[in-house]
Design a protein around this nucleic acid. Structure first.
Length: 482
DNA sequence: CACGGAAGCG
DNA sequence: CGCTTCCGTG
């Protein structure tokens, strides 16, 4: 048979049902433009898809730190992947090879000591969002990019544009080129590239603006794409911050920069000079600003997020608005670059998987998860972690033969399928549904804008705002506050 | 189980 | 390029 790949399972169709409008993955996430047959899905996309669907919770699910997921049923995941790719002989061994292949690209990395546990590294995504920063020179990125720092082995580039590219091929290389200002000035950038950015509205409060002259940007061109929901959001700062982020240092803009908050974001994104412009209470200010514009969810608990339950996230410390960062947290946030710690670390750091969660061992994971000797520290996500406690596993599920009809212990996929209509429960939290862990969070408000349908982006989100304008606004805001 | 080299494929 | 397949090593 010509491969009846059941790919559809995860393919496009259901999108609407599963995700809230505006929150679903962008089209391209499902089927790369070039692949009509949608056979070209990339593994990481696929993984995200699975993670996003409740039906597959028994097979693969978010667990542990942000961005961390566990393949509960390796064989099943492999099978699904094989189906999707029409590779009947796919198995976990091969799948895992492919995942390992992502290590170099920094898309994923292994959570050592935890079997079948991997973690997404969203730094690239973040990068995309921060074209403004001169990647090459930005201390923030460097700092935040502790991925590199830690791992820094062979690769010298802090943020690895290549990695970025691998994720978002269309990304303009310009990202790391001209400085923000140059771009803001209207340097014509390569076009075409920008497409990708559009897909990451969440990333971007302003990012897009920089990638292309405002005038060109216009409202998200291609797709109403605000639909980009990507679950990535969860990984984005905002998302992260909600859950695990350590407290934000005073004056930093955390979440804001991740989310489309023109005001803050523009500044926050900028390194010291600008960020410092923000008043200490800035966070709050930003919140306010945002909140004002958004609707409802701000005050109360927003709808539950789609985020995977983050086991160890102590909610208490989640408050953004208030507090400062403890020394420890700060330190963890950005090893080596305390100063940067503030805004970016939170945002970017989170994206990186900064482990921000850092709070260290404090009771984050379930006992069972923490298992024996597994060292679980804030840095767990980085390659720094050397602990390798892989214990002997008792279960080895290699399936010699792979049959489509075979249903594994999942209990049958059938049940999975019907669960389709409600996939929101898991998946990355769409911006709109970010979990307000506890109290009203700034991020929440920032996020809110997404709630509405894609096409209608709040002005704030509109990429068309020029950087200058943003700055202006920011300053205004600042003044207002003071 | 995890890793990464190497070759191969579309 | 992005895997897939195979494999040796730890």
């Amino acid at each position: 048979m010509d491969c009846n790949c059941v790919s559809d399972l995860l393919l496009t169709p259901p999108v609407p049902t599963l995700w809230t409008p505006g929150i679903a993955f962008p089209d391209w996430a499902y089927k790369p433009e070039s692949s009509p047959g949608s056979r070209q899905i990339q593994l990481w996309h696929f993984i995200l898809e699975l993670l996003q669907k409740e039906e597959y919770q028994g097979v693969i699910a978010w667990q542990g730190d942000y961005g961390e997921f566990v393949i509960k049923d390796p064989d099943e995941v492999a099978k699904l992947w094989g189906l999707r790719k029409c590779k009947p002989h796919m198995n976990y061994d091969k799948l895992s090879r492919a995942l390992r292949y992502y290590y170099n690209k920094r898309i994923l990395h292994k959570t050592k000591g935890k079997r079948f546990t991997y973690k997404f590294n969203f730094s690239k995504v973040v990068l995309v969002n921060y074209p403004l920063l001169d990647m090459a020179s930005s201390p923030f990125l460097l700092a935040q990019n502790h991925f590199n720092g830690g791992t820094a082995t062979s690769d010298c580039s802090p943020v690895t544009p290549e990695a970025l590219q691998s994720l978002f091929p269309r990304l303009p290389e310009s990202v790391r080129g001209p400085s923000l200002f140059d771009r803001a000035a209207g340097a014509p950038g390569p076009d075409g590239d920008k497409l990708r950015l559009e897909s990451f509205p969440f990333l971007g409060s302003g990012a897009p603006c920089y990638s292309k002259p405002p005038s060109l940007l216009g409202p998200y061109p291609r797709n109403p794409s605000f639909d980009y929901p990507w679950g990535f959001n969860p990984y984005l700062p905002g998302a992260f911050s909600l859950n695990n982020c350590p407290k934000l240092p005073p004056g930093s803009l955390y979440s804001s920069h991740f989310y489309p908050n023109p005001l803050q974001s523009s500044l926050s994104q900028l390194p010291h000079p600008f960020s410092s412009l923000l008043p200490p209470g800035d966070t709050t200010g930003a919140e306010r600003a945002q909140t004002g514009g958004t609707n409802g969810s701000a005050g109360g608990q927003p709808p539950r997020l789609c985020i995977p339950p983050y086991p160890g996230v102590p909610i208490g410390r989640t408050e953004l608005g208030n507090g400062g960062l403890s020394d420890r947290e700060r330190g963890e946030t950005i090893p080596g670059v305390p100063g940067a710690g503030g805004g970016l670390s939170l945002g970017l750091g989170l994206g990186l998987g900064l482990g921000g969660v850092g709070v260290g061992g404090g009771g984050r994971q379930s006992p069972s998860e923490r298992r024996k000797g597994v060292k679980q520290d804030p840095e767990s996500d980085s390659d720094l972690e050397i602990t390798d406690l892989s214990d002997c596993s008792s279960e080895n599920e290699n399936e010699p033969d792979f049959s489509l009809g075979k249903e594994s212990r999942l209990g049958g996929r059938s049940h999975l399928l019907d669960a389709k209509s409600r996939g929101l429960g898991r998946g990355l939290p769409p911006l709109s549904s970010l979990p307000p862990p506890v109290s009203p969070h700034p991020v929440k408000s920032l996020v809110t804008p997404l709630t509405p349908p894609p096409s209608s982006l709040p002005p704030a989100l509109s990429p068309s705002l020029s950087m200058v304008d943003r700055h202006r606004e920011t300053e205004t805001l600042k003044l207002t506050q003071s």
